Simulated assay, not measured.
Amino acid sequence: MNERAKADNMDFLTEGTHPIVEAESVVFSYPGAANAALNGLTLRIPAGCRTAICGHNGSGKSTFFLHALGLHRPSSGRLLWKGTELSYQAKQLKKLRQQVGLVFQDPEQQLILNTPGEDVSYGLRNAGVAEADIRHRVKQVLNAMGLDRLTDTPLHHLSLGQKKRVALAGVLALEPELLLLDEPTAYLDRGSERQLMEELDRVHKSGITVVMATHDMNLAYAWADWILVMDQGRCVMAGTPEQVFRNEAAITALGLELPMLLELWQALPEQVREHSAPPRTVEEMKRYLNRLPFAGT
């Protein structure tokens, strides 16, 4: 069975893959807000997988991330890290924030010093890492991200894509077990997006659980192993990309769109599609169409 088929048939929470983070009936409201940002949120993030959390702006994706990092505390319900309820004592929170890294949508909110080298060093120094280890880790992570030639370049000279990769490097230098990314491809051109996604694939292959909040259905469909859909502070759908987007009525009822590639697939004659799983990338679609009898005519 190939990797795609394995994913399609896997119950991530019962067949050897355990949740790394769980939310159980979490309720949270921002001061002065008319509605709860999280309204009884219950979800599980499977360890070792690439998870996309989809939903419109305001559905609670970013607020959940802040809870997973311990920056917000539920008014009711609870968060669990590897099966243990989060503690909000300072010592435990410091340890949690070395295990969980968050990359914000806007890198300007995250980059605080003058150059990539200084900024990555700052996070490590703040975590109490020895100076010799800091120098080694900074060099290692910037090289891995293809940023070594920009180590001493002023941050204001960098492109948005480069700034996003510096923010990611700063988080990865802390060697987290869980990486959270809030709309990581927002405002990027296609080249910068492709480069960032290649970095995220490398990060995932190194053993880090990667979770992305996005309202880009095309990206979620092509990239994720597991998809969660949020609406009005609740998780309303969960499954593999095929399972989630198979429910077209539910997706459209939430005001979301089907991935363009899936819509194109469904527009093909049924006899062309039968006995085949829908492709999830343009390359897969091309390979499938090239194998059809009429492809060479």
Rank of each mutant, 00 (worst) to 15 (best):
V120Y: 05
Q271W: 13
Q195H: 12
W265C: 03
D106F: 07
Q140A: 15
L86A: 05
L168Y: 03
L96I: 07
L13R: 00
E257N: 06
D106M: 01
Q140N: 13
T281G: 09
Q98C: 10
L178S: 02
V282H: 03
Q195I: 09
K61L: 12
L69P: 03
A23F: 14
T84V: 15
G191K: 08
G207D: 07
E85C: 04
I20H: 01
N218A: 11
Y30I: 08
F294Y: 06
V171E: 05
A127H: 14
R287I: 12
E108N: 07
I134V: 15
E131C: 00
A295L: 10
D182A: 01
H56A: 10
R202Y: 11
S59W: 12
S159H: 09
E22Y: 02
E242V: 03
N290A: 12
E242K: 00
A253I: 06
V244N: 00
S192E: 15
L262P: 10
A224V: 12
K6G: 04
D225C: 05
G70K: 02
G146I: 14
E198T: 13
L158G: 01
Q110F: 11
P46Q: 01
A47M: 12
Q232C: 06
T281A: 07
P107S: 00
K61N: 05
E242A: 02
R4V: 12
M217A: 03
F64C: 11
P154L: 02
T252M: 03
A224D: 14
R50T: 03
M237C: 07
S25A: 14
L254Q: 01
T214G: 05
R78Y: 11
E108V: 11
K164F: 15
A144M: 10
K91R: 13
L219Q: 13
A144V: 05
K286C: 14
L188T: 04
L262W: 05
H67C: 06
H56L: 15
G207C: 09
E248Q: 13
N35S: 12
Y221C: 06
E177Y: 04
P241M: 07
A130R: 08
A167E: 14
R149I: 08
L168K: 06
H156S: 08
E257Q: 08
P241S: 01
K82M: 11
Y221E: 08
I53Y: 05
Q140M: 14
A52C: 12
L179A: 10
M230L: 14
A23P: 11
R125M: 15
A130D: 11
N39Q: 04
T214L: 06
G48C: 05
V210C: 06
A249V: 09
Q109T: 12
G48R: 02
N247T: 09
P46M: 07
H215W: 03
H136M: 08
D119V: 06
A33L: 10
V272P: 08
V236W: 05
A37F: 13
A23L: 09
M217Y: 04
Q98S: 10
Q105Y: 07
R44E: 15
L38N: 06
D133T: 09
L256N: 00
N35I: 06
A238I: 07
A144W: 14
L80A: 04
L268M: 10
V236A: 02
S192D: 15
E85N: 00
R4H: 02
P46F: 01
R194C: 05
V103Y: 08
F28H: 11
